[in-house]
């Protein structure tokens, strides 16, 4: 039998072996995700109710105030379903982002006791968010029936892509924040406000069309592309802007690389300062 030899050195250079290692530890990643899902849906009803309640209540409130009272335009789509489609992705993004940012500090007790590639923590933390997304999208299906919308079949192709972009955005940004969070422990108190601010620079409660000439700025935000495209595919109110989607994809992949590099750079010292 050949024994595996491990060499520990002060400065390990960033290498592809790191990714191979993550693959070797895939079972642990699976168990972390399994743990999160188990804990979240232990009391099935409460778990599901919570996943549905958050976006649903937000939809009701926004529909009353923005749709009803403020007469926010919504590209000719009934406001509740317009805002819900946006909230669905927004909720996935914001909860995934905050989950990732807290993944290291939240698991500090494990990090200081056992070795494993730290990257699997943020990645497996997001799995529950996918489940939440799945549950919350059932409401959207209900709303689609209620308002009599038939989505174009292209949604089957587009949806995975949109989820992928959202996932990468949340992981990329989250990894960066997670590393900062270890060092500056007050970041986690600022984060919710930061995410709330982001909501207003993303066309969730308003259509991107009302921004006029500023829409270019809005396009920097990858979530703009995601939400616009999802509406286009769901309601057929506009053609899908593949170009915008492509730019978003490239932008988030760059964000992901930056996030990973930053995370890896500080990763080795987490245990010393956590």
């Amino acid at each position: 039998m050949v024994m595996k030899t491990t060499i520990l050195k002060p400065k390990k250079t960033f290498s592809w072996n790191d990714f191979k290692e993550i693959w070797e530890y895939r079972e642990l990643a699976y168990f972390f995700a399994w743990r999160d899902i188990k804990v979240r849906y232990k009391q099935t009803f409460v778990g599901i109710a919570w996943a549905v309640f958050q976006p649903f209540m937000a939809m009701v409130v926004f529909s009353i105030f923005f749709g009803g009272l403020a007469k926010m335009p919504s590209d000719g789509i009934p406001y509740p379903i317009f805002v819900y489609s946006g909230l669905l992705f927004w909720q996935f993004f914001s909860s995934a982002l905050s989950e990732t940012s807290n993944s290291l500090v939240g698991n500090a007790n494990i990090i200081t006791k056992v070795y494993f590639p730290r990257l699997i923590l943020p990645i497996s933390g997001i799995v529950t968010k996918f489940v939440d997304f799945g549950i919350a999208s059932l409401i959207l299906v209900g709303l689609m029936f209620y308002y009599n919308f038939t989505p174009s079949p292209i949604i089957l192709l587009v949806l995975p892509l949109l989820l992928f972009i959202t996932f990468i955005t949340a992981v990329g940004g989250g990894l960066f924040l997670a590393a900062i969070n270890v060092k500056y422990r007050d970041v986690r108190y600022i984060l919710p406000y930061f995410i709330q601010m982001l909501l207003f620079v993303t066309p969730v409660i308003y259509p991107a069309s009302i921004t006029g000439k500023w829409s270019v700025l809005l396009a920097i935000n990858p979530m703009t592309g995601v939400i616009k495209t999802s509406r286009a595919a769901l309601f057929g109110n506009a053609p899908i802007n593949w170009e915008l989607l492509g730019i978003s994809l490239v932008a988030v992949l760059i964000l992901l690389v930056i996030g990973i590099v930053f995370f890896k750079k500080t990763e080795r010292y987490f245990a010393d300062i956590v």
Binding site: T6, L8, K9, I111, Y115
Partner: peptide, 14 residues
Amino acid sequence: SRITPPTTGEIKIS
């Protein structure tokens, strides 16, 4: 246990 890296030197584990 690889929780933290050494500052100097090398450890070889088989």
